[in-house]
Nucleic acid binder design. Sequence first.
DNA 1: GCCGTTTTCGGCCCGACTGTTTTCAGTCG
Length: 565
Amino acid sequence: MSSNNTVLHVLKLTASVMELHEENTFKIRAYQNAAIAIDKTPYAIEDLSDEDLSALQGIGASMGKKIREIVATGSLSELNALLENTPAGLLELFDLPGIGAKKIRTLWKELGIESTAQLLEACNNNQIANQKGFGEKTQENLRKAILFQHEQSKKLLIPDAQQKGSELLIALKTISPDTPISWCGELYQQAEIVNSLDFIVATADAVKTLGTIQAKLEADWTPAESTPFTLRGLEKTTGIPLTIRTAVPHAFESQRVLFSSENGHLRHAVSDKETFLDICVKHATQTEKELYQTAGVALIPAECRVGYAEWELAKENKIEQLLTYKDLQGIFHNHSTYSDGIHTLAEMAHACITEGWKYFGIADHSQTAFYANGLKEDRVLQQFAEIDELNKKLAPFVIFKGIESDILNDGALDYPDELLKQFDYVVASVHSNLKMDEEKAMSRLIKAIENPYTTMLGHMTGRLLLRREGYPLDTYKIIDACAANKVIIELNANPHRLDIDWRFLDYAQDKGVLISINPDAHEQAGVLDTHYGVISARKGGLLVQNTFNTLTLEEIKTYFTEKKK
DNA sequence: GCCGTTTTCGGCCCGACTGTTTTCAGTCG
């Protein structure tokens, strides 16, 4: 963990623990504000002078010293003193939606609950509903939240899985340097959610190889679930299932295909007599490329082996037309220091120039998103002026004037038409009141889609993978509405969102809807999340020709001009 | 504990929703 993250974590934790102990609320807020300041600064804390540190909004002399202590020791004495009087398990409860410090304190002091496990038991025994300030619904919501969290805690998002997968691969290669080893399963397929970290090793002596790995790689191995050819256990730091498969060297690639592809992909009938699975078994010595040749198609890339659109595309010779990262010419939907980003407009533009892109669309938050420092009209105009200046300097590179307009409760956009018409484009997104029923959520979204100023629909369902379900939608009807109103659909590339889900891309393309791969970047590094969006897009069979941000600069300009007519 | 001053203490981000309660506290984005 970088020291900024450590500081952020310790400050937030201190604020939470202080809340549990009913310390002064404004003092608590000071810690929370300091955490926000750390989160927003693009600088490494240890590189800042004392003056620069205290100059950050929300950090004074006193907080500055505490931050120095955290950087130096990884901890904070005030926090440690409080933790001595706080049950460790109590802090888990902060991760549950629907309860905060006040309710957690009540559970602790009135019912003696000190962990998530104890809270679940109390819910099951109907002990929560009668407590003052709680009730039947709260009890049931808590029970569901704990079960949901428990289920999700056994999974990893793609960036976390890839990081852990890379570390393990290096460790395995060190242990067994002379054998080919590769990712397998969901890692190899680059699934958006990973349930199990799988590897495959080429060896003529599986027992010996796995024995060495079991002895040298630290994990909670489960011999009862292992076989002479497959070693199973739980990864140490995450508790996620870990599987080391073996294959005889000449069958390494065919086995990797078999253990890394969805059933729907393998069961595809290549001919009257054979499925692709049959081919992989029968021609076990072939390479991946040869296996697909045997099936009569070009190599289907690993991330596309999901049993969705890939065989059809392969048979039509369209695999080469699948979107790749290098096809992208620019990105839309990004944030800057104008709203809740941590890099300036110019810095974000430079991150795009570094990627070799030709244009950059800024879409900071609109005025209603108060928590995200959304832009009132005067600041929109101020940003317009800065964009005009930057465009002179950066030409032929172009910054487009966009906005991520909140979709209000009634489906309206967040500015009067007079202002809306001055943007090059508008990304319309829902950020509040996420618990609407389907009927209300649909009519709100449809109204926003029908608004003539809406260019793109942002993160369609509002879902946060492993954290929050999206609001209920009839996605097909939303796609139909976008088609009818010529609204582009965003594939939000943030790995927490990946929204629209790739499983709807086939339908969207059939309806002629354009998809824009949008990173929703809040800092320079966030621009690179676009990679995750491309992986998702490829799973859904998105073609270059249907991807909005593969258009050239001139084509984009024309599109926006046409849209305004 | 921070900030901005009517320089030394008083105020500190807003609005809506949910589930309680029977007028509002707690939570969330």
